[in-house]
Amino acid sequence: MSVDAVLKTTRETAIWGHYPDDRPPVLTVASGAVVTIDAVNMFGASAPEGPVAYFEALGVPAGEVLPELAEVAANPRPPGASGHILTGPIHVEGAKPGDVLEIQVLDVSPRVAYGVNATGPGAGACGDLLEEVSVRLLRLDETGRHYRFADGITIPLRPFMGIMGVTPPASAGFVSANPPGRWGGNLDFRDLTAGSTLYLPVFRPGGLFYTGDSHGAQGHGEVGQTAVEHSMSLTARFSVRTDMRLEYPRAENDAYVWCMGIDADLDIALRVAVREAVAYLVEATKGALKPADAYALCSMAVDFVVAEAVNVTKVVVAYIPKSLLP
């Protein structure tokens, strides 16, 4: 695979979780460029004792801790910013507001051999079930394909980037990276693995793309607040699409088209996902399916999945099988 640029996470290229209105691009690429981004997960960076001591307490030798975590930890964290570490922004030449940025995910691979899961009272969808904080280190096995969770229980490695997003419109004001939105961001959509393509509406010249919050595995909903939080490298092709118009993110792989509904109210998120799916089906069939037909087809053959449940704003994804359509 030919890579046009490599973007490393450093103190200069990373920020704590928000989308600044005035941050200059850390990388500018042509449409169609393939970029590898050496991203980091936030775990350890915000620990008072520092990332090395944090991971050593979990049994990770100091030499296995990514040094850039300490660099990024020294950056100031603005009030209201989330604990995520974002790398970017990347300016894609030619992208204009109203266009669509296509992110073709070519590879997501671990930078270290371990991840962390943490939860506790008040965390996630049912934090009232817990009385104390739980932190787990999950190491990849000798094959590099599974995490050992407990005796007889393993979790397959299925890496993806929890955050992939463009900079929101200026009218949005200060935007934390915690809730996802029409700009994408913290979608935590587990199927955006290698071989998938994400489409995001563009609000600023160049799109100004950020990524971070990489995961080694996650269930839909991420109900406990964190997944396997694992630093990853993302390799993706960035292309400007002037032939598309989107209000909400959309994605696809070989088997599905995914239409997304995003809102703080789960009912509204579902309604948006249904409307987006109906609109797609009408468009994809060039009007052969009328809205009433598409709505009925959604009820009979399209799954609506709660992909993200715990970051203030909910994400519902419509799984439209490509095999449905001619």
Rank of each mutant, 00 (worst) to 15 (best):
S2Y: 02
V3P: 15
A5W: 04
V6R: 15
L7A: 01
H18M: 07
D22P: 04
R23S: 00
R23T: 00
P25W: 03
P25H: 04
V26I: 00
G32T: 10
T36C: 03
D38T: 04
A39R: 00
N41K: 00
A47S: 15
A53S: 15
A53V: 13
E56C: 08
L58A: 01
A62D: 12
E71K: 08
V72K: 00
V72Q: 03
P76R: 06
R77F: 01
P78Q: 04
S82F: 02
H84T: 03
T87Q: 07
A95V: 11
P97C: 06
G98V: 07
E102Q: 14
E102N: 05
V105H: 07
D107Y: 07
G120E: 08
A123Y: 14
G124E: 06
A125C: 05
G127P: 08
L130N: 10
R136D: 14
R139D: 11
E142V: 02
G144V: 05
G144E: 12
R148W: 10
D151R: 09
D151A: 13
G152N: 01
L157T: 07
R158M: 05
G165W: 04
P168R: 09
F174Q: 07
S176Q: 09
P179L: 08
P179M: 12
P179A: 09
G181W: 13
D188S: 09
R190A: 15
R190P: 00
D191S: 10
R204D: 00
P205M: 03
G206A: 09
F209V: 05
F209C: 00
G212N: 00
S214H: 06
S214V: 01
S214N: 06
H215A: 04
G216Q: 12
V223G: 00
Q225Y: 11
S231V: 00
S231Y: 01
M232F: 12
S233I: 01
L234M: 10
F238Q: 12
E247K: 12
A251R: 06
E252L: 02
A255T: 07
V257R: 13
W258Q: 01
C259T: 03
D263N: 14
A264S: 11
A264P: 14
D267R: 13
I268Q: 12
L270S: 01
V272C: 03
A279W: 01
Y280A: 03
Y280G: 04
L281R: 09
E283G: 04
K286A: 14
K290M: 13
K290Q: 15
Y295L: 14
A296R: 15
L297F: 12
M300E: 15
V305N: 08
V312Q: 13
V312S: 09
V315W: 09
V315G: 02
V315H: 11
I320S: 01
S323W: 06
L325S: 08
